[in-house]
């Protein structure tokens, strides 16, 4: 589902953000990426979603060799996944309903289908009442839920979420995590970056990946959460 090998990301002149990252996530897994601020989590997600290209190495997501795609292929690839970024990326001149239904409209879905799926997902994130509202009038948590709804509305096979609960109180973030577990149970692979230890604790079936100073290494299901691990060797370790 997600396969990275020998991935390096270097910003000029010598800011090495990711170093020899090896990653292999299988379909249906629920994976957390944890690590201190500035460790490279967002950078990793930018590479995986094709918003940035690795300095070297290869990235294969959902059957797409992401680092080799042209613009149109990238667009097709993005239609097949759901992404939540830290900065929500909502269109301010369109209301909640229009924002959430965007992926469906891009895929040319029928009007009835658009309305049905959008209403359904808005209900799940608890925003049915705000459907006609514009993003500027929403709270941070509401914006975050709009972004989550938009990432899920087209039922992607892979969900990638960078700090999806960063602006939510524990109750709301619990609900969102339940939603993620639910879609994971239906077969969607979930890949989440987070600082929130409770989030990880409350999730039953999971795998944890540590990232520190640009190096990725493994944690097993049995290990306590939030504990950082030393790299097993200089080159980093394949987490499997």
């Amino acid at each position: 589902m997600v396969k990275l090998s020998h991935v390096y990301k270097t910003y000029s002149p010598d800011i090495h953000v990711l170093k020899n990252v090896e990653l292999n996530i299988k379909p249906g897994e629920f994976v957390f990426v944890v690590g201190p601020s500035g460790a490279g989590k967002t950078t990793l997600f930018r590479l995986i979603t094709g918003f940035d290209t690795p300095t070297s190495g290869s990235i294969e997501i959902n059957g797409f060799a992401v680092n080799t795609l042209n613009k149109t292929q990238i667009a097709k690839f993005r239609q097949s996944i759901g992404v939540v970024f830290q900065d929500f990326k909502l269109l301010n001149d369109r209301n909640v309903f229009e924002n959430v239904s965007l992926p469906l409209r891009i895929q040319g879905k029928h009007k009835f289908e658009i309305i049905e799926h959008t209403d359904q997902i808005l209900k799940k994130v608890g925003l049915s009442k705000k459907a006609k509202e514009y993003p500027v009038y929403l709270s941070g948590g509401e914006k975050q839920r709009v972004a989550i709804a938009r990432a899920l509305v087209h039922q992607p096979k892979l969900l990638i979420a960078d700090e999806p609960t960063g602006n939510l109180d524990w109750k709301l973030s619990d609900e969102i995590m339940n939603l993620f577990s639910e879609i994971n149970n239906r077969g969607t692979t979930v890949f989440i970056a987070t600082h929130d230890q409770n989030l990880i604790k409350n999730t039953v079936k999971k795998k944890i990946i540590n990232i520190e100073a640009g190096q990725v290494f493994q944690s097993g299901d049995k290990h306590p959460c939030g504990q950082y691990f030393k790299p097993l060797n200089e080159a980093g370790l394949n987490i499997l």
Partner: peptide, 9 residues
């Protein structure tokens, strides 16, 4: 943002 949600060029 449109690119982000998979809009084609």
């Amino acid at each position: 943002i449109l690119e982000f949600v998979g809009e084609t060029p």
